[in-house]
Structure formats: structure tokens, C-alpha cells
């Protein structure tokens, strides 16, 4: 095909607590989140990021790699990516990455992206529903030293190493051009995520990261002890079989991505939550401003005085 350029995309996805289905046990007595009691879901906007990457691949060919950081259980979201069409999944899982804030997280992700190497696009959801910061995507781009385009609504076209993107700017949109590689953050309105593909689900429901396999293996060994006749293959052989069958999801530690431990987890996270306060916004009347130069001047003045502007 003439002009057929396959693009290599990386999609950053996160497993988050399901804040839409919060139960009474969701909060501990001290007011912090009880993650164990919360069901987890695929961060909603990340599904749209994945869809954007898959649509790009549908149109141009290429490869979509899903990347996540989290506990071994976060392999769930990578399996979900595989069900929906991703070519590869990578999980960064390491106890020392726990409690990372956005700075540390974006550092870890950018290290992993560097390790993946060749890429044209990095897709992130605009923000995660647990933190709501919208910082990780942009921080990653900074660390990688590549262009970032936030609030992507549509990839208009891409050719000769230049992508044109329509981004949503609240009350309207703007068309921007960026040279590849580029990191984009994707809005919920960008697309409608495709469903799982049944055949891929049947195939990849068995996909595992090494830690999960090891856990299952240990459990089986314990059961096998009760039933000594049961034959069992050694772990290495099992892992190899998964790998050869394309069912081993990559699992990377902080060492494997060459991360500086001081920049990861708690030591690498300067954010300190000082206090959490619930704020209820109430409306107290309104002021009408005349649509004249004088009216606008007065409005701007008022906004400056109450520090909304400036």
C-alpha cells in the first residue's frame, strides 16, 4: 500500500478503585481510603486512550503496547487491553513503587517507556478517577522530552512524521500540529471504546504476569501436598510454556527499567497530603453585567479583586 506507515503506540492504563460504587467500608476510621474494600475498575478515560490507539492502528497498522504500574492484580487491566485488541502488555510492579505520587509515577512510567524504546505515540487518559490530577501524562512527556497535546478529541490525520490533532478547549476546539513522537491525553468524548472481542478474551483470559503465575503455582503446590499423586511441572517450565504461547504479560521491576530508587515510591514523592476538606459550593445570588466596555471593565476588576484572575 502506498503511504502505509505503521505506528507504534504505547498506552498508559491504570487500575483504580471504583469510586462510582463506593460502599460504607470504603473509608478507614482515620479517613484514608481502604483500597482492599473497594472494587477496582479500568480507569474510564484510559479506555478512551486505548481506543484512540487501536483506531490509529486500524487505520495505519502498527502495534499497541499497554503499560501499567501497580500491584500484580493490576494485570487485570492489561488483560482487558489484550481482550480489546492491544498487542502487548507490560506491568511495572515493585513494592518500592508503592505510594508514588504523580512525580514519581511519571518518572517510573517514563523510564519504562524509554526501555520500550521505539515509539511514535504515547496515549494517556486525561486523568484518573482516584487522584483527578491530570498530571501524570504531561509530566511523562516532560521527562521524555517530547511534545505533549492534552485533551485530545480526534486525530485528524498523520503523515510524514506530523500529526494533526483536534483538542477540546472547553468552549471550543483547536487544531494543533505536532511532530512525532508525541504524548497525548485523551478525553472521554474522543471516542466510544470498543467492547472486548470474544475470541481474544477466550485466548487471553489465561494471560498472566510472572507474579500471578508464581502465586498460582504456590497454591497448586500446597494442594498437591495434600494429594501427592498429582503430577506437577516445575515452575520454570510452566512460565516457559506461557511465554511460548504468548500468554506471559511482561513484568518489570524498578531495576529492570533502570530507575533511580530515590525518585520512586515514598522517597521520590514530595507530595504530602496535609488535610482533606469537603467543600460544598453554594450559589449566593448573581450580578448582571452590562454588555458594554464599561461593564466588562468592571467585571474584570471584580475578578482581579477576589483573585479569580491575575
Amino acid at each position: 500500500m502506498v503511504g502505509f506507515v505503521p505506528y507504534r503506540s504505547i498506552v498508559c492504563v491504570k487500575q483504580v478503585p471504583d469510586t462510582a460504587n463506593v460502599t460504607a467500608e470504603a473509608m478507614k476510621e482515620d479517613g484514608t481510603v481502604n483500597r482492599a474494600a473497594l472494587p477496582t475498575v479500568f480507569n474510564p478515560e484510559d479506555l478512551h486512550a486505548l481506543e484512540a490507539a487501536l483506531e490509529l492502528r486500524d487505520a495505519h497498522g502498527g502495534m499497541v503496547t499497554a503499560l501499567s504500574m501497580g500491584p500484580p492484580k493490576a494485570a487485570d487491566v492489561l488483560r482487558e487491553c489484550l481482550y480489546r485488541g492491544a498487542d502487548r502488555g507490560i506491568l511495572i510492579t515493585d513494592r518500592r513503587a508503592a505510594a508514588s505520587d504523580t512525580l514519581a509515577t511519571s518518572y517510573i512510567l517514563s523510564q519504562a517507556i524509554r526501555k520500550i524504546g521505539d515509539y511514535d505515540f504515547v496515549f494517556c487518559g486525561r486523568q484518573a478517577i482516584d487522584g483527578d490530577t491530570a498530571q501524570v501524562g504531561p509530566q511523562c512527556a516532560e521527562k521524555l522530552g517530547i511534545t505533549q497535546v492534552t485533551y485530545l478529541e480526534r486525530i485528524v490525520d498523520v503523515s510524514d512524521g506530523v500529526v494533526r490533532i483536534r483538542r477540546n478547549i472547553g468552549l471550543g476546539w483547536e487544531l494543533v500540529e505536532a511532530s512525532l513522537p508525541v504524548l497525548v491525553t485523551v478525553l472521554e468524548t474522543a471516542n466510544r471504546p470498543r467492547p472486548r472481542a470474544a475470541k481474544r478474551m477466550i485466548r487471553f483470559k489465561r494471560a498472566r504476569v510472572r507474579s500471578e503465575l508464581a502465586g498460582e503455582f504456590r497454591k497448586q503446590m500446597a494442594e498437591a501436598k495434600a494429594e501427592p499423586e498429582m503430577p506437577g511441572a516445575p515452575f520454570g517450565q510452566i512460565a516457559e510454556w506461557f511465554d511460548e504461547s504468548g500468554l506471559l504479560i511482561d513484568q518489570w521491576s524498578l531495576e529492570e527499567i533502570g530507575a533511580d530508587l530515590a525518585r520512586c515510591g515514598l522517597p521520590g514523592s514530595p507530595t504530602k497530603v496535609h488535610r482533606i476538606q469537603a467543600i460544598v459550593l453554594t450559589k449566593e445570588g448573581y450580578t448582571q453585567v452590562a454588555a458594554s466596555n464599561e461593564g466588562i471593565r468592571r467585571l474584570v476588576h471584580e475578578l482581579v479583586v477576589d483573585r479569580t484572575l491575575g
Binding site: 466510544r192 470498543r194 467492547p195 472486548r196 470474544a198
Partner: peptide
């Protein structure tokens, strides 16, 4: 769109 999703879902 519905048909497309059904196809995508195999």
C-alpha cells in the same frame, strides 16, 4: 454503530 460493535466483539 451497533452492528460495528457486535462485529468488534466477535
Amino acid at each position: 454503530e451497533n452492528l460495528k460493535q457486535l462485529a468488534q466483539a466477535d
